[in-house]
Computed example of a mutant assay.
Amino acid sequence: MLILRCPNCGIDADETELAPGGEAHLRRVGPEASDDAFEGYLFHRENPRGVHFERWRHAAGCGKWFHAARCTQTLEVFGTYSAQVTDPPQDIRDAITARRPGWRWRDIE
């Protein structure tokens, strides 16, 4: 069972109390974007086998959105953090790198 700590209210919630929101840290395109860029934003998502950043809502709790970094293979959770950030916090990136040497995601090292 997947258990995530809501960074907003501090409660450890299991997956039955949470609502998934898809991939986190999407780069949105503006109205001047090409059709291909808009299609990429709407439909093309990363679906890695391994470390993944996701959006979650504490539906049966405080109701707020947050982000989680976890492994899709093992359900190992590296941490959760506020949804109001554009990139994962450094402590989350360090936790992933410590457990997965050589790991890289997009422009984050």
Rank of each mutant, 00 (worst) to 15 (best):
V29M: 09
N47S: 14
A59L: 15
D36C: 06
A59G: 08
D35W: 15
C62D: 06
R45S: 12
G61Y: 04
G22P: 02
W56T: 01
N47D: 12
F38V: 14
P31A: 12
G22V: 00
A37S: 09
A33D: 08
L18S: 04
V51Q: 02
E23K: 01
E46R: 00
E32Q: 07
R55T: 01
E32L: 10
G21R: 10
F43E: 11
D36A: 13
R27D: 06
N47V: 15
A37V: 00
E39C: 11
G50A: 03
R49C: 01
H25F: 15
G61W: 03
A60I: 04
A33V: 04
D36G: 09
D35A: 15
R57C: 06
P48Q: 01
G63P: 09
E54H: 07
L42I: 03
G40C: 06
N47C: 07
P20T: 02
P31R: 11
D35Y: 14
G21N: 07
H25K: 10
R55H: 15
P31Q: 10
L18W: 02
V51W: 01
D35G: 13
E39W: 15
G22N: 11
P20F: 05
A59W: 06
R55I: 02
P31F: 12
R57W: 05
A60C: 15
A37R: 10
V29F: 14
E46D: 15
E39D: 14
P20A: 06
G40Y: 06
R27S: 10
E46I: 05
H52C: 04
G40D: 12
C62N: 10
E17G: 05
R27V: 09
L18G: 01
G40S: 13
R45Y: 14
L42K: 08
F38H: 15
G30H: 05
G21T: 02
K64I: 05
F43L: 07
G30N: 11
L42Q: 09
H25S: 05
S34R: 03
H44L: 12
L26M: 13
K64T: 09
V51G: 02
R45I: 08
A24T: 06
G61S: 10
R49N: 03
A60L: 10
A19P: 08
R49S: 02
H44D: 12
C62H: 04
R55G: 02
R27T: 04
R57F: 03
G40K: 08
R28W: 13
D36E: 15
D35T: 15
S34H: 04
C62E: 10
R57Y: 11
Y41C: 00
F43R: 07
P20N: 13
G40V: 01
F43I: 03
A19V: 13
A33E: 11
H44A: 08
P48V: 00
H44Q: 14
D35C: 12
